[in-house]
Design a binder for these strands. Sequence first.
DNA 1: AAGAAAATCATAATGCGTTATAGTTTATTG
DNA 2: CAATAAACTATAACGCATTATGATTTTCTT
Lengths: 213, 213
Amino acid sequence: MSVREAQKNTRRRAILDAARSLILDGKERDFSMLTLAEKAGVSLVTPYNLFGSKSSILLEIVREDIYDRIVHVEALVSESLAEWVAALSATLAEVYYKNRHFYRRMIVTLVAQQNADTQRASLEFSYRTFENALSHLQERGILPATVPVDLLARQCAHSVSGSLQQRLMQRGTEELLRREIELGLLFLLAGICADKDRQVLRDRINELARLPG
Amino acid sequence: MSVREAQKNTRRRAILDAARSLILDGKERDFSMLTLAEKAGVSLVTPYNLFGSKSSILLEIVREDIYDRIVHVEALVSESLAEWVAALSATLAEVYYKNRHFYRRMIVTLVAQQNADTQRASLEFSYRTFENALSHLQERGILPATVPVDLLARQCAHSVSGSLQQRLMQRGTEELLRREIELGLLFLLAGICADKDRQVLRDRINELARLPG
DNA sequence: AAGAAAATCATAATGCGTTATAGTTTATTG
DNA sequence: CAATAAACTATAACGCATTATGATTTTCTT
């Protein structure tokens, strides 16, 4: 790699690190491009040169920081569909809630911007994440082979993102977020799962329905 | 009503009308608060006094203009669940696609803004719309009485809004949007519908899965 | 080592939603 | 019929993402 590329990478790293530390520090405010650039020790324009936009930076952080954890959680590979749903919901809710200030900003920034490319990248990314997870289930026989995994993955992604918009933007608790995510997945899966699983999922739906909130 | 209130209402109307005509005119650009105010014949600040924010104005238009059509479409009350899903998807896709420039802006504006109240109002509104529709189905015996309609309504709203974000923001065709909406509803309903309906919905899912795109 | 190319920097400018200020008109009220 | 209060207007300002400009430094090429 040329010296020039190496320097770029160093700057990229500095910017991503600065962003991450700003996310963890400042509870919510002052995540402007200017503060980010100052913290990273570069000029205001450099992040634009290296990433293109603010949302690209955020997406990059999600990529390398957050989703990795989810994809690699082996504990999520349970034996029953209901267990898997419960485990995944809990993990997602925990990660999202712990970084809720970041995700609030992320949702806003990603949706708000006109640049369709970053948006597409973000969608593609969550679709693929779910597709991997569902394929895994299918390989282990937990999900019937006939399920169109790609389509279902999109719907799962939509559902989770809707739950986020509802519970994260509206400042619900982690528990409420977890339940909402779980509910969405249960509804989506109950129709196409193996017959033996269906009643379990439906019972769980009714259990959640009985809870207050 | 006092004279003062009447004058306010006149101004409100002028602003909403100006907004609607701007939406229909300008294919996408120049929907700034300044142009809106000029078109309505009021000062820049007046819309803020009367509505609070840009997103409130957009939401108001959706309320009185778009959703009314959906709620009142009697044709949507079909005899079978699959028919209902198909009819609703077609109607939604048509309305959203026809006003796609407006809805693109709406999604951005609603999600982007910090003011949680408008966001909550918008969510509540779509939840309630779906809740009404689903209750109607339940009353007619098309949906089992045991279905927790409120929870399912939220998930339907999330699903549709996810499809919008995917297909509208990414400039898909009306057909693709319709299919995505239909798919989401099919997945969500297949689990909790009456046993006799399930296979129909699943067949339809597989039919959609076989289409390209 | 010298010139070309790339990337950065500091700084200014643009666009847009929103808020603040101060003055003016107009309905309400006693 | 004044005094008060509400609502407006015009205008300026703020915050922040983003883009433009022109100078400067640094790497690459030959």
